[in-house]
Structure formats: C-alpha cells, structure tokens
Measured scan of single mutants.
Amino acid sequence: MQIFVKTLTGKTITLEVEPSDTIENVKAKIQDKEGIPPDQQRLIFNGKQLEDGRTLSDYNIQKDSTLHLVLR
C-alpha cells in the first residue's frame, strides 16, 4: 500500500509499505529515499509519536495515510 510522509519543509515522500511493516522498517525506507538516519527521525500520526517496535496496523495506518516526519 502507499503512504505519504510529510516533512517540515513541506516536501511529501511517497512510500510503498505493508500494514505489517514496523515503524523501524518505515524509517529505513525514508533513509533509503532521503538519506536521513533513522535515529534522527520521529514519525507522528494523528498527533501520536510512533514507536519503532510497533507496526503500521497497530496504529491503524491505512493506505494513503499521511505521517509527519520531525527531525531531532
């Protein structure tokens, strides 16, 4: 499925993911596309910070959902 990740600069990254993917996996995909190390990434969905060990389906993230990427 496709999800979107919006950065603070207003750029939107499109990712191909599975609901069973962990947040860690998603961060690795963002690193592949953008070169941002996962330990600098914080992903936010519906105002909640997403934890590495959880999956997209844990957070009820579905296709065409938009996550927000904050760098630390």
Results as ranks from 00 to 15, higher is better:
R42Y: 15
M1A: 11
E18Q: 11
V5M: 05
E24Y: 07
Q62A: 04
L43E: 00
S57N: 04
L50A: 03
T22S: 03
L15R: 00
R42F: 12
K29T: 07
V26F: 07
I23W: 01
D52P: 05
Y59I: 05
Q62Y: 10
E51D: 07
M1S: 03
V5L: 11
F45L: 03
K63P: 12
P38Y: 14
E18H: 06
S65T: 15
K6Q: 06
L71W: 03
E18V: 11
K48Y: 12
L15Y: 04
D58V: 10
V17Y: 14
T7Q: 02
S65Y: 10
L8V: 08
L67W: 01
I44N: 15
D39Q: 15
Q2E: 11
K33T: 05
D21Y: 10
T66A: 04
L56K: 00
Y59F: 09
G35L: 06
K63D: 05
Y59Q: 03
N46R: 09
E16F: 13
S20Y: 06
A28S: 08
I3A: 01
L43T: 00
L69F: 02
K27W: 08
S57I: 15
T14A: 11
T55I: 04
E16W: 13
D52Q: 12
E16R: 08
K48N: 07
L15H: 01
D58F: 08
L43N: 00
T12A: 12
G47N: 08
K6V: 13
V70A: 06
I61R: 00
V26M: 09
F45Q: 06
H68D: 04
D32G: 11
I30E: 00
D64S: 08
E18M: 11
E24M: 10
K29R: 08
L43G: 00
G10P: 09
L56R: 00
L67E: 01
D32Q: 11
D58M: 02
P37N: 15
N25T: 11
L15Q: 01
K33I: 11
D58P: 01
H68L: 02
E34N: 05
G47V: 06
G47A: 11
I30H: 00
I36Y: 10
K48W: 13
G10Q: 08
N60W: 15
K63Q: 12
T9Q: 04
F4I: 14
K11D: 14
Q2M: 07
A28H: 13
K63S: 12
E24V: 02
P19D: 06
Q62M: 11
D21E: 15
K33L: 05
K11N: 10
V26D: 00
D52N: 04
N46M: 09
E34D: 02
V26G: 00
V5Q: 00
K29A: 08
Q62T: 07
I13P: 00
S57Q: 06
V5F: 09
T22H: 15
E34G: 07
Q49H: 15
P19M: 13
G53Y: 05
L71F: 03
P37A: 15
T12V: 11
T9W: 02
G35I: 04
G53F: 10
S57R: 13
T55N: 06
F45P: 00
D21W: 02
D52A: 05
V26I: 13
L8R: 09
D52M: 08
P37F: 13
N46A: 12
N25F: 02
N25V: 13
L71A: 10
T22P: 14
K27I: 02
S65W: 05
L15W: 01
G10A: 09
V70L: 04
Q49F: 06
L15E: 01
D39M: 15
V17M: 08
L8H: 12
L56M: 09
E16P: 11
